[in-house]
Amino acid sequence: MLKRIIICTFLIFSIFMNAQNEKPDRAPFTLTVAVDTVNYYQQEVPKSPYFVKEKVLQIYPSEKLFIEAEVKADSIYSMKVVKENLNPEKTITLEFIQNVEGKSHAGMMLTVKNPFEKRLTYEALMYINGGSKWISTSIIPIRPKLMNFEMWNDIILSLVLVEWKLE
């Protein structure tokens, strides 16, 4: 009887802790992106979901995210942003930054860490400074257990990452 109580207590506690770790929305913030030594782009980003649709992630420069993925039958079934990387074996780490040299734009970089035993692929759309539409950009697949660095010369205000797959 005591063993059942301990097991039930542990299960309830672990469910509660996992729910506490979820982070479905970003806090509002001011996005500031360098353009040149004098000009910069600035935008108020309101509180908004990271996943704008199922498995459709929007990320802004300066954000670092932990994406916990549920895998079923060798494919990504669901994804959610979490506050802490409590399950590194199933958590994709992303960081999107702007490189600046002397107050001037020097490039954008997206870092993605693949925790899985299979190759991770996804597609990306970018919205650039001065643009009027989302533009598709090429992405290199990430080999198992490795990290990938995507770099662009464009001044990217946001990326949308879609079509997440394990191959």
Rank of each mutant, 00 (worst) to 15 (best):
Y41P: 02
Y41S: 11
Y41C: 10
Q42D: 03
Q42N: 07
Q42H: 06
Q42V: 12
Q42F: 03
Q42R: 13
Q42G: 00
Q43F: 05
Q43P: 01
Q43K: 14
Q43V: 02
E44C: 00
E44A: 12
E44Y: 14
E44F: 12
V45C: 05
V45L: 03
V45Y: 00
P46N: 08
P46S: 12
P46A: 11
P46Y: 02
K47R: 15
K47T: 13
K47I: 07
K47G: 06
K47P: 00
S48D: 10
S48A: 15
Y50W: 13
Y50E: 08
F51T: 05
F51E: 06
F51Q: 06
F51G: 08
E54A: 13
E54Q: 13
K55Q: 11
K55T: 00
V56Y: 00
L57W: 06
L57C: 02
Q58Y: 03
Q58N: 11
Q58W: 03
Q58L: 08
Y60I: 02
Y60C: 02
P61V: 02
P61L: 07
P61T: 02
P61G: 00
S62W: 06
E63L: 07
E63F: 06
K64Y: 04
K64F: 07
K64G: 13
K64W: 09
L65D: 10
L65Q: 04
L65T: 03
L65M: 08
F66Q: 08
F66V: 05
F66P: 01
F66S: 11
F66C: 09
F66R: 09
F66E: 09
I67L: 15
I67H: 00
I67E: 03
E68N: 12
A69L: 02
E70V: 14
E70P: 03
E70Y: 07
V71T: 09
V71P: 06
V71R: 04
K72F: 09
K72P: 01
A73H: 14
A73R: 15
A73T: 11
D74L: 12
S75C: 08
S75L: 11
S75R: 14
S75E: 15
S75K: 15
I76N: 07
I76C: 04
I76K: 08
Y77E: 15
Y77I: 01
Y77V: 05
S78H: 08
S78V: 03
M79Y: 01
M79G: 04
K80G: 07
K80P: 04
K80E: 14
K80Y: 01
V81H: 04
V81W: 08
V82L: 08
V82T: 09
V82C: 02
K83Y: 11
K83H: 12
K83C: 05
K83F: 10
K83I: 08
E84C: 02
E84I: 05
E84R: 14
N85P: 05
L86W: 15
L86S: 11
N87Y: 15
N87Q: 14
N87R: 13
P88Y: 04
P88I: 04
E89V: 10
E89W: 11
K90M: 10
K90D: 06
K90F: 01
T91N: 05
T91G: 02
T91P: 07
I92F: 05
I92W: 01
I92A: 05
T93Y: 06
T93I: 11
T93G: 08
L94M: 14
L94G: 00
E95P: 01
E95N: 11
E95W: 00
F96Y: 04
F96H: 03
